Amino acid sequence: MTILVTGSTGSLGRLVIASLLERGADPQSIVAGARDTAKASDLGVRVAHLDYTDPSSIAAALDGVESVLLISGSEVGQRVPQHQAVIDAAKAAGVTKFVYTSAPKATTSDLVLAPEHKATEEAIVAADLPAVILRNNWYTENYAADLARAAETGVVASGAASGRVASASRKDFAEAAAVVLLEDGHIGRVYELGGDVAWDYTELAAAISEVTGRDVTYRPLSADEQLAGLQAAGLDEGTAGFVVALDAGIAAGALADSDGTMSRLIGRPTTPLVDGLRAIA
């Protein structure tokens, strides 16, 4: 079985390939799809040029491939057509397993980033691909900047109110992807993946305190306070508004669910918040 991993030079893609190899996959059975193939030269697997905006490169990368992991693109606002290009090429190539990294409860969530994932999931269904949907919750690594700021200021500031986040380390999510790519029995499943424990921002501040060795407190922000602060820090109005909307979604509970699905898939507990933060400190 030949597996194509798109976005292979990104943080998640690299970890997925490492997890596939750790689980015994033949390096020659893995194709690392990358826009810049030079950046994939250290992955230890076959490399193919793959640009989401270049359908011919996608078709070429899929030659002889049976399974695909489509790691969602990073260009917000452009992801649906980019993903559609991969879906169309995979359908034409007759792939037997199509795995996509989506967002929590993508088809029903009010989270600001959910619509592009919802549209992608719908496109996968419309293409009648044999698919597995991995709805990834937040990566603990998303809080690297909060960790760095809190180490300097002693404050975690957010508009997430008392919302909870079932985060896990990227390595956990990468292992889950490797499992479904290598194992049979997952076609047709939609997995809501998250950490075993959902935490709130007061607990995030306490975890950062433990990691940094200094007292850190959580300061809740109103939407207006957060927007003004982000713009003062140099973010444009659109980007600042997007961040504020993300935190509003967290406050409303969009990332709070944790049912142990990922730990069951990977065969171990997910990485605790403190350990995940310590790894990126």
Rank of each mutant, 00 (worst) to 15 (best):
S102A: 09
V86M: 12
S74N: 10
A177L: 02
A18H: 06
Y218T: 04
G159Y: 05
R189M: 09
E121M: 10
T6S: 15
R23H: 03
T202S: 00
S67V: 06
G234P: 09
L235S: 14
E121W: 05
V243T: 10
R23Q: 15
L227N: 14
I3G: 00
A114F: 09
K91A: 15
V243S: 11
G185P: 09
T212M: 01
L147G: 09
T2E: 11
D200V: 02
A34D: 10
L227E: 05
F242I: 03
T212Y: 07
Q28H: 14
S11F: 12
N136T: 10
I30S: 05
L70G: 00
P269N: 06
A40S: 03
T96M: 01
A206K: 03
W138D: 07
T101G: 03
I187P: 01
A85P: 02
D184I: 04
R79A: 01
H117R: 02
G7E: 06
L255I: 00
A59W: 07
A60Y: 01
A206R: 02
A38M: 12
R164V: 08
G7P: 01
A233C: 10
G229W: 13
A198Q: 11
T101R: 00
E225N: 09
A127D: 04
D54K: 13
I250H: 06
T2Q: 13
V112Q: 06
A148G: 08
V86I: 13
A93Y: 06
L246G: 08
T2S: 15
S258T: 02
L193N: 08
D184T: 12
Q84V: 15
I133M: 10
L43N: 05
I3E: 10
S11Q: 15
S41M: 14
V179P: 11
A256Q: 13
A145M: 12
S56A: 15
L182W: 08
L43E: 05
S158H: 11
A157P: 07
A228V: 14
V243R: 11
L129V: 10
L113I: 14
V80P: 14
F98V: 04
I280Y: 07
D88P: 07
V197I: 12
A177D: 08
P55G: 00
D257W: 14
T9Y: 06
I250E: 06
A131Y: 10
S57A: 06
L20I: 03
A256W: 09
L70C: 08
R170W: 06
V155R: 01
I17M: 11
E183G: 12
G44L: 12
D196N: 07
I58E: 08
R164E: 09
G185N: 01
I280N: 07
V155L: 14
L265F: 12
A232S: 14
D88I: 07
E22H: 01
E210T: 15
V76F: 11
T120K: 01
S158A: 15
T261L: 00
R14V: 10
